[in-house]
């Protein structure tokens, strides 16, 4: 139930990738899927009424371990967001090159092989 939004978002992205013909819309679908996976990973570290994962002197270690949210997925997802940004830049440059070669963003018209 907690992860419903992630699955809906992922389905939206998959729908865009599999049905759209415009290459920019396909890239948008890929990015929506990327965000859905990131959201899923962050929510896997979620804990209801959790506290921030910072160990201070005021709180005892067992109590902190029982209450703090998991910081590991958050740190990993931050890396994943950066990689997603790089992938997005690469995809857009490839789309630009395809536009320069064919003069269109429609993937059904990119048929002819041109050396």
């Amino acid at each position: 139930m907690l992860y419903t939004l992630c699955f809906i978002l992922f389905a939206v992205g998959l729908f865009a990738v599999s049905t759209q013909k415009n290459i920019i819309k396909i890239i948008m679908g890929i990015e929506i899927m990327d965000l859905a996976v990131n959201l899923f990973l962050v929510m896997s570290g979620y804990r209801a009424d959790g506290r921030t994962p910072i160990l201070t002197r005021e709180v005892s270690r067992p109590e902190w371990l029982a209450a703090a949210v998991d910081p590991f997925p958050q740190a990993m997802v931050l890396t994943s967001i950066v990689i997603g940004l790089g992938v997005l830049a690469l995809l857009l440059v490839l789309a630009l090159r395809l536009y320069g070669r064919y003069g269109t963003y429609d993937i059904t018209k990119m048929r002819k092989l041109r050396g």
Binding site: L96, G100, R101, Y102, G103, T104
Partner: peptide, 14 residues
Amino acid sequence: VMASVRFAGSGEEL
């Protein structure tokens, strides 16, 4: 770099 790409026309090289 991405904003300074210009197309000479359809079917042309970048």
